[in-house]
Design a protein around this nucleic acid. Structure first.
Lengths: 110, 110
DNA sequence: GATTAACATGCGCATATACTCATATAGTTG
DNA sequence: CAACTATATGAGTATATGCGCATGTTAATC
């Protein structure tokens, strides 16, 4: 654990943007679905229950954030998680949320 | 590492909300400032350069998300990081961003 | 109890973004 | 080249949220 140097304003904005990408339930669901491995858009549409247009947009956002990789094969496009830190991030947040919920003892709802 | 069970829609929304709280540069700056330990609002206002009203609002958001603790002492209110996972979260994202920037070789700016 | 200090909050505005619908693009097959 | 499939994208709308300004609230001091 090295001592943290304060981040510049620009760095903070980049970090914030990265968190913002993860701040949408649909994108999290897509990531979660991709935990099992590469998938094409249609499969993701069916797995998540979203519309094709919306899923496509979120996949674009995730790809631009360098969290997903994009591989074209004929008519289909396959997406896969390209940033392993995503797994740990989700684990961390889930673990932290479990503790919070444990404290609140099931009485969550804002 | 246990196998990940798929999260419910409700759980996904909670995770998303948590990420959303971290998706603002000003809130990240506040957290970063609080890495050194407890501080009162005035000190945070000076350290971050924000307005008092804005800092207060962000502190409220962070507290409601159970990331900060709030301690009142006379006229002053002291805030401190109450969720240790925040440190690891920031480390993870920063590390991941460094890799991304290394690939882009400094040519970031959308 | 009036004044002052530290912090919180109501309100309005501006901006960002998620969603839907329709349409465009790329690639395959007849 | 026409028809079809898989995916992407432009336009419009609705909602969320960050910010500034002003004001409210709580607590200490005179």
């Amino acid at each position: 654990m090295a001592k943290q140097a304060p981040l510049t304003d620009e760095a903070l904005e980049h970090v914030a943007r990265r968190f913002a990408v993860l701040a949408e339930p649909m994108r999290l669901r897509l990531l979660q679905t991709l935990f099992d491995g590469e998938m094409n858009v249609n499969a993701l549409v069916e797995a998540t229950g979203g519309t094709q247009a919306n899923v496509s947009r979120h996949l674009q956002t995730l790809t631009q954030a360098h969290m997903l990789s994009r591989r074209k094969e004929g008519l289909q496009v396959f997406y896969a998680i390209s940033d392993p830190s995503i797994f740990k991030l989700c684990e961390l947040v889930c673990g932290s949320l479990e503790k919070t919920f444990a404290k609140q003892a099931g009485s969550f709802g804002r």
